[in-house]
Amino acid sequence: MKKTMPRPVIGAEKAVGYIRDGMSVMIGGFNYGGIPYTLVDALAASGVKDLHLIANDTAYANEEHPEGIGHGKLVVNRQVRKVTASHVGLNRETGRLFNEGRLDLELVPQGTFVERIRCGGFGLGGFLSPTGVGTIYEEGRQTLEISGEKFIVELPLKADVALIRACKADTWGNLIYVGTNRNFNPLMATAADLVFAEVDEIVEAGDLDPDCIVTPGILVDALVLKGDSYYASRT
């Protein structure tokens, strides 16, 4: 997708139309905060499958919400073949499908997860982390000793598409965030071939203070206005 100016403002269905079976998709959010709910709901409705979901967690699926909340729905709908995440305990379907051998699950410490994405987006070949040394997480991973301290070699993470959530955009696609909705979203904006940002509102270029912009618009392909679902309207 060639970037055009001003950044196109498109519907969620059109945005997720770029996502094909088998693609890797990064989705922002921590717990229920900062998830691009409108985009994710459209992806859940699209029926696209065999996705590699890269997200901090798999949101929710429980007794109260068996259909799932946010990208929890993608797991419930069996649209996901692999999950890379740091925590999946709030989505009972993720654990169940993994235990039944129907889902590939890569669990990564949260700081490692986000740093791998940062490496992917910032052109680095990887990094050395002390996190997880001596634990089961180290098994099967390369280690290096530097000045007597052992580190795990961590590799970059990239994706075909990133669905992220910001607060305001301008017509150049520059983004600012609000509260704890920020979390993984600015990092994911750097690490995918296509980046769709769901926002509360879009203002004219020049209306956002350049000093406060977190994500430069050059990283963003298109903007989607948030919908009015329960969580989209409250987060």
């Binding site: 717990n31 704890t180 920020r182 993984f184």
Partner: peptide
């Protein structure tokens, strides 16, 4: 709900607080 803690409960911000993205948060931690 735009301001939550790690357990998912809403939180307040004390005067002088700041908010960073996850890479920075774990940079502080590690």
């Amino acid at each position: 709900l735009r301001y939550i803690g790690a357990g998912g409960r809403a939180l307040s911000l004390i005067p002088g607080s700041s908010i960073v993205a996850s890479d920075f948060s774990f940079g502080l931690i590690r």
